[in-house]
Design a protein around this nucleic acid. Structure first.
Length: 421
RNA sequence: GGAGACGUCGCAUAGUCCGGUCGAGUGCACCACCCUGCUAAGGUGGAGAACCCGUUCAGGGUUCCGUGGGUUCAAAUCCCACCGUCUCCGCCA
């Protein structure tokens, strides 16, 4: 949620942000109006309530004989208080609803426009060249006995898979590599719940435009999370953090569940886009002044993983219209996928500035001892989809795959994955 | 799943039976100042969160005693529902 203060003081900033996103500009004026109405209603109620409280003190010390007369007098006041209280509750709920509907203010130099208006910041690494016809990740996965889509579909339906043998080991090795690096960088590992309450899901902004991608467990009124970001953001909800010693940094390891309702027909082959996968996610709570530096730090960690895994990649600065509602800026790292002849997103890192924190009531002590919302940032450090780029990039003519050196210690020293027959 | 106990301001507790002078006492921790050669001890004062009005660095007000309802002129206190914690019993891939 954005700062209501900003809505009053500089609505043009909010409107500019909406414009860059291609979102509804009129929402700004409607929210500002509702906010004014809300404040008026609150003032009204509080004046009446103060009067009633003062009266209550008189009743308390009145003698038995005086009481009936006083009580008769205050009846009308009590009714007025009740009415004003109900009105202010209604108006307040409406104002908050509109305020929450406004997505985060995008940072000033984020490219405007939609999905295709990203800016490529850099391309790194050499795209692999083959003197044979490269196989795609699923073909390789089947040769290696690593990926089984057919049985995934038999047991759970489309977009479910089994990772078996070296596939399962690759996944775990990848997570372990990422975890090791997270620990080296001082992050605290967390294995997070994957079922969360509605208010946590809403607080992180995933019930907005992403609502159709979310699994809901109706019998319990809980949501399955599509990323551990949700539980990581909720971890410190309603708390006042001590950031005097620097940011609070976490690495969340969890299975992720996504409905992929909007992607019918897209990426149906293999494990590029499945309903269930694993991810190691970085998450930081920082002083808002340090948010951009933290964002750069996360991106650097992601790029180091790409480089060390021998993947060719590029970094894009996502356009405003393609940002989630919580993000003020997002960088994606995309790896080259040889058989697709294009870059595919492997990681994403978002600076949510104070947006999530305000929704989830996560504050710290700012100057003068005042509380102020923190900034939150998140970024992928490893995920199942990486297996696609690793298999395809490091494949050999016979269908074997060379294991990147950094992964070998996490695969019991295995250096080449061999076809099973 | 069943039975019982509990949920108060950072922590620990008082207050709840018998509604008002309780937004709330005490201890510890915390901050400032005083005292002491230093430390410890001691003294005085301060200190929660959210929001509204006002100020620009004065203040005033409202709300918050697990959450949400209800009763009442008035609820930490009475009633209802829910959530959570603990104990015992049952069940368990």
């Amino acid at each position: 949620m954005i700062d209501a203060q900003l809505l009053r003081a500089a609505p043009e900033v909010v409107e500019a942000s909406q414009r860059a996103r291609g979102a509804d500009e009129g929402l700004v004026a409607r929210a500002a109006e509702a906010d004014a109405e809300r404040r008026e209603a609150i003032a009204d109620f509080e004046r009446l309530r103060a009067e009633q409280n003062a009266f209550g003190k008189r009743v308390a010390v009145a003698s038995k004989e005086e009481k009936p007369a006083l009580l008769a007098q205050v009846k009308q006041l009590a009714a007025d208080v009740r009415q004003a209280s109900e009105r202010s509750a209604v108006v307040e709920a409406r104002a908050e609803e509109l305020l929450r509907a406004i997505p985060n203010i995008v940072l000033a130099d984020v490219p405007a426009g939609g999905e295709d208006d990203y800016v490529v910041l850099r391309e790194v690494g050499e795209r692999p060249a083959f003197d044979f016809e490269p196989r795609d990740h699923l073909e390789l996965g089947e040769l290696l006995g690593a990926i089984d889509m057919a049985r995934g579909a038999k047991v759970s339906g489309a977009r479910f898979s089994y990772l078996r043998g070296v596939g399962a080991r690759l996944e775990i090795g990848l997570m372990q590599l990422a975890l090791t690096r997270a620990l080296d960088a001082g992050l605290v590992p967390l294995i997070t719940p994957t079922l969360v309450k509605p208010e946590i899901m809403a607080g992180t902004g995933f019930l907005g435009e992403h609502a159709d991608a979310v699994y809901r467990v109706e019998s319990e009124d809980l949501y399955l999370t599509g990323t551990s970001e949700v539980a990581l953001a909720g971890y410190h909800a309603d708390e006042i953090l001590d950031l005097a010693d620097g940011p609070l940094r976490y690495a969340g390891w969890s299975t992720c569940y996504r409905l992929e309702a909007g992607s019918a027909g897209k990426d149906t082959r293999g494990i590029i886009r499945t309903h269930q996968f694993d991810k190691l996610e970085m998450f930081s709570y920082v002083d808002p002044a340090q948010a951009e530096a933290e964002h750069a730090r996360m991106l650097a960690m992601q790029e180091a993983m790409m480089t060390d895994l021998g993947l060719a990649y590029r970094v894009i600065d996502t356009a405003a219209g393609d940002l989630g509602s919580s993000a003020a800026r997002k960088y994606d790292v995309e790896a080259w996928v040889p058989t697709q002849g294009r870059y595919r997103e492997l990681t994403s890192t978002s600076n949510c500035t104070t947006y999530q924190a305000r929704r989830l009531a996560i504050r710290h002590r700012a100057e003068g001892g005042r509380t102020a919302p923190v900034a939150t940032l998140n970024g992928t450090l490893a995920t199942t989809r990486w297996i696609v780029a690793i298999l395809e990039t490091h494949q050999q003519e016979d269908g074997s795959v060379v294991v990147p050196e950094v992964l070998r210690p996490h695969l019991g020293g295995l250096d080449v994955l061999e076809p099973i027959r």
